[in-house]
Design a protein around this nucleic acid. Structure first.
Lengths: 219, 219
DNA sequence: TAGATTGTTAATCGATTAACAATC
DNA sequence: TAGATTGTTAATCGATTAACAATC
């Protein structure tokens, strides 16, 4: 890719860095609640079992600069991370699939802290359509295109069963969605401009299983 | 670490490899259902948008060997992967926290395919104790130690709120649990022989957010 | 001032990818 | 046989870690 554009897009931060950053943010909220003004990379590393140098490198990607001997101003760092993640702006979001997992996510009040504004849920089950789940209306999946367009929804969360996931993704894409958070276990096919992030619980379980199987300890 | 033990422990496979393997298994189950006998690394790579060489490397870690020109026998590869992950043996498991997420997990019937046998759920909410969630009994958190010991439970899934997570982890460890699948957003402190795998949904959301913010596409 | 912490530059480590001989 | 695919060895790439000067 040549740099023929006016302003060459900054290289995105390493994915491992991006994945670690929310845990820093969570710790920072704790510090803020405790009324602490400063936090150092050393503190953070200690609390999260990381190396200080790694935390410092990660921080640099958010654009913050610290003060030798003191570290970072907690509130500044919170702002910097929120800006970096885009969590200072709300993204209108729909959840497709109001089964157990979908319901659990709908009820998660922490989404607003993560930049998500839940517009509503969608399902094709007549029994659920029109009902409320944790205060959010369940709409008919048939109407999803108009709701997405009318509300400028940018993110869709897919929590439907595997066999329905691709067709739901197609509908979301057709309606102009920009990003999909995919909780189904299928690899979705979407145009390359649509971002899909797959949340794969079985990956985490696999890591746990293999580590347990290796029984690294002698007891 | 020196190799003074009788049988030096095999080096564990790379974590990224372990994380990818469940998605191979899922595809293999599809192939089996379709009655197909062979699958090649090329096929798998194509379906999951990976490079064939990466799939072959990953496969090698499971111990399977293939046949040039044909690939791998589907049923053999399934067995090999299940053995590698330890999902051919059932691990008795408890879920602590019967809120929305806990309930969703309890209801997930696919756990048996992932080597987990759910013994029951635990909560400290009087209203929930004694009730059934998706056919599984909710027990009093106070009784967790005896249930874990009596049933030889090796895995604990934590789905309680953040402020309760560490104390639950302490109880699980005290009762002799071997592994913890932690869905709470806190970094748990446990003895080094206890394996903790943290399932951090905010990491995935962070990746989605940053990629969306970078709007790599021009529309 | 002394010392802890930052930020930068260089070295190391580990995973991915490439190259290619072996094989069915 | 010809050609697709495997498995191995080597090269590349990217993230982590180390080293250290700058600074408050």
């Amino acid at each position: 890719m040549s740099d023929d554009s006016i302003k060459t897009k900054d290289k995105i931060a390493p994915l491992p860095t991006i994945r670690r950053i929310p845990s820093y943010l969570r710790l920072l909220y704790e510090y803020r609640k405790e009324g602490r003004e400063w936090i150092s990379a050393t503190d953070i590393a200690e609390r999260l079992s990381l190396k200080p140098i790694q935390v410092r490198k990660d921080m640099a990607f958010t654009g913050i600069t610290g003060k030798p001997k003191k570290g970072f101003v907690v509130s500044d760092l919170i702002d910097s991370i929120r800006g970096f993640l885009g969590w200072d702006m709300m993204s209108d979001t729909v959840i497709v699939g109001s089964g157990a997992l979908g319901s659990a996510l709908i009820g998660y009040s922490g989404f607003s802290e993560h930049g998500l504004n839940i517009i509503g849920a969608f399902d094709n089950d007549e029994a659920k359509i029109g009902s409320l789940i944790h205060g959010h209306k369940v709409y008919d999946l048939k109407d999803i295109a108009s709701v997405i367009k009318d509300n400028d929804v940018t993110i869709g969360i897919i929590t439907v069963p595997a066999q329905a996931a691709q067709s739901v993704a197609d509908k979301l894409v057709e309606a102009g969605i920009k990003g999909i958070w995919n909780f189904s276990p299928v690899k979705l096919r979407v145009p390359e401009c649509v971002i899909v992030e797959k949340e794969d619980l079985s990956s985490g379980l696999a890591v746990l299983s293999v580590k347990l199987g290796a029984h690294l300890c002698t007891d």
